[in-house]
Design a protein around this nucleic acid. Structure first.
Length: 392
DNA sequence: ACGCGGGGCTGAGCTGTCAT
DNA sequence: ATGACAGCTCAGCCCCGCGT
């Protein structure tokens, strides 16, 4: 069987996902060297092609598709199993792996997300109290910038990250603030963010201080220059959208009513960011963009902005992420006390994909396709005001 | 024990190239 | 000619090791 490895730009399929048909079913295959992410993404590519009835040479089985992953990673085995379990569309997915002799056989998929051995440190890290250090709230309040927020760092002992509309401008342990933006590239290049920081503050080295006023002054002068760039540039920035969603400035409507913040806004901290999850055994921690709530129901929110890479591919991957975050939260019952403390029922967690409204008419067909793919997994697709994804 | 800094990994932004 | 993917670089996150 011939495999088509050419990039398919109409359907936004990259050259890492080959198309073919296997025993009369629509199928895709990844290369033996495919990364864990490519292996997981191929399942979504396959389902999107099938649900949108993308053209094929010969008719294919309407309710059965085949995913061929020659060498599944441990994480992908878990994640693909979770995704196939969560699928509510009437499609059977056969996942095949390849033996050394070239034969394909059904792959073992799925994993036990409740096994705390996979994330032994997390219960204690999540359970510890996170009082906001006095220095953190004083610095944030001293600048009088609604876009400056502190983010708790979940996996360090006492760390807080300071971000201006999502851009990290420093960190603090509660005793001193260490301010910097980015770093010089190994080839000597310097990003716009870092150039602006150095020009407006004069600090090309990390700048440490325990003095609230000194820190606030440096941050304020950077903020002024950074925001002035908004007059001439209109970049989309995922961190900016995330920052606005986490402080409640961008409403996320599901079923006609907005989700609320995970905890009452104090004007200082963006709670609900970077909740840790895992997608499969042995895999790395995958951090959730935003955790919001509707009453006692937690919502795992994955956001994407229109980047350089294709709209279709990008948004498709977001659907997989939303499902994997949601299912981990539902099943990792060792972490459920964290939710109970906040009056949340983790077993009822929902998932959403959030993107800036698709304004380009050329992208209109992606709205329908992503919505269908979301529906196949009971994920909610939400479009927000595109201006909220702008940096300034 | 703790803090700093380096290294590795993932993902986003930019730009060239190539499918359409 | 157009616009979407590929590939490179950097931002932001982690972990780990070394020095205090």
């Amino acid at each position: 069987m011939k495999i088509n490895w050419n990039a398919d730009k109409r359907n936004s399929i990259g050259s890492s996902t080959g198309r073919l048909s296997v025993e009369g079913t629509r199928a895709v295959e990844v290369r033996p060297s495919a990364t864990s992410k490519q292996q997981i993404a191929a399942l979504l590519d396959l389902l999107d092609l099938h649900l949108s009835n993308a053209q094929v040479a010969q008719p294919v089985h309407p309710r059965e598709v085949t995913l061929r992953v020659p060498v599944p990673s441990s994480e992908a085995r878990g994640a693909i199993g979770t995704l196939v379990d969560a699928l509510v569309a009437p499609v059977q997915v056969n996942v095949l792996e390849q033996a050394v002799n070239g034969d394909w056989s059904l792959a073992a998929t799925g994993w036990d997300a409740s096994n705390v051995e996979e994330y032994p440190g997390w219960p204690a890290l999540l359970q510890r109290p996170r009082p906001v250090p006095d220095l953190v709230s004083r610095v944030v309040r001293a600048t009088s910038l609604s876009s400056l927020r502190a983010y708790p760092m979940l996996s360090t002992s006492a760390g807080w990250s300071l971000r201006l509309e999502g851009l990290e401008i420093g960190r603090t342990d509660g005793k001193r603030v260490r301010l910097k933006v980015g770093k010089d590239g190994k080839l000597g290049d310097r990003s716009l963010q870092r150039r602006t920081w150095i020009e407006s503050t004069g600090h090309s080295e990390p700048f440490q201080t325990g003095d609230v006023e000194v820190a606030a002054k440096a941050i304020a002068s950077f903020a002024k220059s950074w925001q002035a760039l908004g007059q001439t540039r209109a970049d989309h920035d995922e961190h900016a959208l995330e920052s606005r969603i986490l402080r409640g400035a961008t409403p996320i409507d599901v079923g006609g009513k907005p989700l609320s913040l995970i905890q009452q806004d104090d004007g200082v901290v963006n709670w609900g960011s970077q909740f840790p999850t895992k997608w499969g055994p042995g895999g790395k921690a995958r951090y959730l963009d935003a955790l919001l709530r509707d009453g006692s129901t937690p919502w795992a929110v994955e956001m994407k902005v229109q980047g350089g890479a294709g709209v279709g591919q990008y948004y498709r991957h977001a659907v997989a992420q939303a499902v994997l975050y949601r299912e981990f939260i539902r099943r990792a019952f060792v972490l459920h006390p964290w939710f109970e403390m906040r009056g949340l029922d983790a077993t009822r967690c929902q998932g959403a994909v959030v993107v800036p409204r698709l304004t380009n008419p050329r992208h209109a067909h992606w709205r329908a396709r992503v919505t269908d793919l979301c529906a196949a997994f009971e994920v909610t697709f939400v479009e927000v005001d595109p201006s909220h994804a702008l940096r300034h």
